[in-house]
Write a protein that binds this DNA or RNA. Structure first.
Lengths: 337, 337
DNA sequence: GTGAAAGCGCTAACAT
DNA sequence: ATGTTAGCGCTTTCAC
C-alpha cells in the first residue's frame, strides 16, 4: 500500500508539532524563518504531497469542478473545454469531465450519483430537455453552484452563458435571402432544446420579415450529426416542391447536406445555397467551402468558468446571463456565382 | 456554508449508531433487514450523499483517474477520451482531465503539482519527449500507477498501449508505391516523439524494400496541424526535384498538403498522391477524399483504462505493452485514375 | 446484529 | 512563535 509522507512525518523528524509544520507549509502564519526553512527542506526531502482528501474534508471544498457535456468528439465542445480549462488551470482548479453521449438517462444517472462533496461547482451543457430538469435543481438545492452554457436549462434560475442563437440564425437566413435564394429550408436539431428553438425562430422571423413563405414541410428536425444532415436532405428532396437553399442548425449537418446534394449532382451555391452554424474548421476544408455563423466557443468556456468561480467565492452571487454574438462567415456555399 | 446530510444525521434521526448506518449503507455486513430498510429510507429522505473526501481519507483511494493529453480539440484524442470514459464510467471511476496544449513545460508543471492523493492512477499521452521523463518517474515512484498510450515514454517501465505506427506507415507507403508513385516524400511530426520516429521508420523501410531513393530533402519535420501541413508542402515544393506523392504523419497535415497542392493547381491523385494517418472523419469529407491508415482510437482508450484499473487493483501487476493494428483505408487521393 | 472508539491527514481554535 | 486538542465524515477493529 502506497503512503505518502505526511505533516506528521515531517513534524516528528524535526521534533516539532504538526501545527507548526502545517503553518510553515502554508506560509501564512507567524512562523520562525528558520523553522519554516527546515520544514520546507524536510518536505522536499521526504517528497511530501498534501493530501487533498484531508484538506477537502476540513474545508469542505476540493478545488475540483465538474463539467457535464453531451459530447466531446466535436470541435465546438472540445474548444469550449479548452476555454474552461484555461481559466480553471490559472485558478488552481481541476476539472472532472463527464460526457453523456447525448443520452438523457445517462445525464440523470451521472448527476444523481455525482460526488457532490468532491465538487465545488458544476458546469453544464444539457443533453436533452425532453425530461425534467429536476436533477439539476437538486444539485443547486444542495448548495452546489451550477453554471449552464450553450445548451441551457430554461426552468432553472442560475447563471447561463450562450451565443446569440436567434440573431445568428436570423443573419444567416437574411444572408441567403440577400444572395437571391427564396425557398429556404431549415435542417434543425432535436425539438425541445432551447437553442434549437432559438435558431428556428431566427430563421422564421427572417423569412417573415422578408415576406417569404414559411413552409412547415421545409423544416425538418433530427439529431446533430453529419448523417442526420444527409438524411434530412433526402427527406426534403422527397417534397413536391424543393427548396433552393438550406440553413442547417450546425456545420456537421450542413456538411451532410452538401454531401447528399453532391451525390444528386446538384451544384452547391449555384443550384442550392447552404449555410451552417459553428465555424467548425471543416467548413473551410469542404468543397465548396461552407458559409456559416462562427460561435465563440472558447470565449463561452472561459466566461462560464469565470462565472462559476465567482459563484463559488462570493456567498450570495446573483445569477448572470450572458449572450455572446456570433459572426457571419461568408464562403462559397451560399453564393450563386 | 452548504452541508450535506451525514451518516451521523441518519444515525441520530433513527437513534442508532453511525457504524450501523455505515454498514447498512454499504450493504455488505450483517445488518438487520428492517434496520437497513429504515436507514436507506432515511438516507433518501435526507438526500444523503456520501462524502468522498472522507472515504478517500480512510481508504487512501478516490475512484478518480487523471488523464493527461497534449490536446483535446482533435478527433483522435477526443475519441480516445470517449473510450477511456466508457470503461471508467462502468467501473465507477471519475476522470480528471488535464490538457497541456502540447506544451512540455506545462506538462511538467501539471504533473509536479498533481494532487497525487486525489488520483488512483494516471493515463498519459506525452506532449514532447524533448525533456526528460523524470516527472513521470516521480509519480510512479510515489506508487501511483501510470499507463502510457499513443505517445509513450520510452524510458519508463510501465504499461503502454499504442497503435502499430511502424507497420501502418509501412503499408501506407507501399500502397503509394503499388499505385505507381515513385518519388515519395514524408511530412513528419516533431522529432523526438517515439511514434513520429516509428512512422518515419516504416516509411523508410518501405522505400528501401522497394529500392526507391531515400532523399533527406523529402523528409520534413514540423508540428501536427493543418497549417504545418501546408507549410511543409510549400517547403517541399522549393526543392529542385519535387516528389510525386506525400505520406503525412496524420490526416490534418495531409489535408494541409492537399489544400496547398490545390492552390498550386496540382491535381491530387493524378499528379501527386497523398495519404494520411488517423482516419479523421474529415478525410472522407475533403475533396478528393483522403486515403489513410485508420487508428483504433476508441479501442486504445478502452484498453488503456482497463489496464490502469488492473494496475490499481492488483498489488503487483506486471507492466504490459499492447500494440493494436491500424487499417489501410483507400480513397481517392492515392490513385492516378 | 449493534455500539464504542480509534484513526485516516489536515486545519483551526485555544493555550502558553 | 509554537504546542495541544478537537473535529471534518467515514470505516473498521474490538467488544458485547
Amino acid at each position: 500500500m502506497r503512503r505518502f509522507a505526511t505533516i506528521k512525518d515531517i513534524a516528528s523528524a524535526l521534533n516539532i508539532s504538526v501545527s507548526t509544520v502545517s503553518r510553515a507549509l502554508r506560509d501564512t502564519y507567524d512562523v520562525n524563518a528558520s523553522t519554516r526553512q527546515a520544514v520546507l527542506q524536510k518536505a522536499t526531502e521526504l517528497n511530501y504531497r498534501p493530501n487533498f482528501n484531508a484538506i477537502g474534508l476540513v474545508h469542505n471544498r476540493t478545488h475540483n469542478l465538474g463539467i457535464l457535456l453531451p459530447e466531446i468528439t466535436n470541435y465546438y465542445f472540445s474548444t469550449l473545454f479548452t476555454g474552461i480549462q484555461e481559466v480553471a488551470y490559472k485558478a488552481g482548479y481541476n476539472l472532472t469531465l463527464f460526457v453523456t453521449g447525448n443520452d438523457a438517462e445517462r445525464e440523470v444517472d451521472i448527476v444523481r450519483n455525482l460526488s457532490l462533496s468532491g465538487l465545488d461547482g458544476l458546469l453544464v451543457s444539457v443533453s436533452s430537455q425532453a425530461d425534467s430538469d429536476q436533477h439539476f435543481q437538486e444539485v443547486i438545492d444542495n448548495g452546489v453552484p451550477v453554471v449552464f452554457f450553450d445548451r441551457v436549462s430554461e426552468n432553472i434560475h442560475t447563471s447561463k452563458v450562450m451565443q446569440d442563437d436567434y440573431n445568428g440564425a436570423f443573419e444567416a437566413t437574411v444572408h441567403l435571402i440577400k444572395n437571391g435564394y427564396g425557398k429556404i429550408a431549415h435542417i434543425a436539431g432535436p425539438e425541445g432544446l432551447t437553442f434549437t428553438q432559438a435558431r428556428l425562430n431566427g430563421y422564421l422571423d427572417a423569412l417573415r420579415k422578408h415576406k417569404l413563405p414559411v413552409k412547415p414541410s421545409w423544416i425538418v428536425h433530427s439529431g446533430f450529426t453529419q448523417q442526420h444532415g444527409e438524411q434530412d436532405l433526402e427527406q426534403l428532396w422527397e417534397r413536391r416542391e424543393k427548396p433552393d437553399a438550406i440553413f442547417a442548425v450546425n456545420d456537421r449537418k450542413a456538411i451532410g447536406a452538401i454531401l447528399a446534394l453532391k451525390r444528386k449532382n446538384i451544384r452547391i451555391g449555384k443550384d442550392v445555397g447552404v449555410i451552417g452554424f459553428t465555424n467548425d474548421p471543416v467548413a473551410a476544408i469542404v468543397s465548396p467551402s461552407l458559409s456559416t455563423v462562427a460561435e465563440p466557443a472558447f470565449e463561452i468556456g472561459k466566461l462560464s468558468c469565470e462565472l462559476l468561480l465567482k459563484h463559488i467565492h462570493k456567498k450570495r452571487f446573483e445569477p448572470e446571463q450572458v449572450t455572446l454574438p456570433g459572426k457571419l462567415i461568408v464562403r462559397e456555399s451560399s453564393s450563386r456565382l
